[in-house]
């Protein structure tokens, strides 16, 4: 199953859980599964059904260009990060 890293500010929703394994084949489904288990999680990361402005998803250490549509494999590692502007 994919493993998702819970951002520190959202651990109030997960009872302090830092990493979880959840059955999901895409980031969108993963967020759905998280919200089902920890109500309110989706509101923290989604706005109008899309990732909140500036929020990014990293899969296996790389910020995915696909966002919610990024596909997940068993063993994928998922992180929620903020967009980083370079110079």
């Amino acid at each position: 199953m994919p493993r998702v890293h819970i951002p520190a500010p959202a651990r109030d929703l997960t009872g302090g859980e830092v990493e979880l394994e959840l059955e999901a084949t895409s980031v969108r489904r993963l967020i759905g599964a998280l919200d089902e288990r920890f109500p309110g999680f989706a509101d923290r990361v989604l706005e109008d059904g899309e990732l909140k402005p500036g929020l990014r998803v990293a899969v296996d250490g790389h910020v995915s260009a696909m966002g919610l549509l990024a596909q997940l494999e068993p063993g994928s590692q998922v992180h929620f990060l903020l967009a980083i502007g370079g110079g």
Binding site: P9, A10, R44
Partner: peptide, 23 residues
């Protein structure tokens, strides 16, 4: 705005964002 995936405050302030990471 507490980031990432936190909540937003409700009073005017100069502190626009607070990022928190912990491991």
């Amino acid at each position: 705005d507490l980031q990432p995936a936190g909540e937003t405050g409700d009073t005017p302030t100069n502190v626009a964002k607070h990022f928190h990471y912990e491991k």
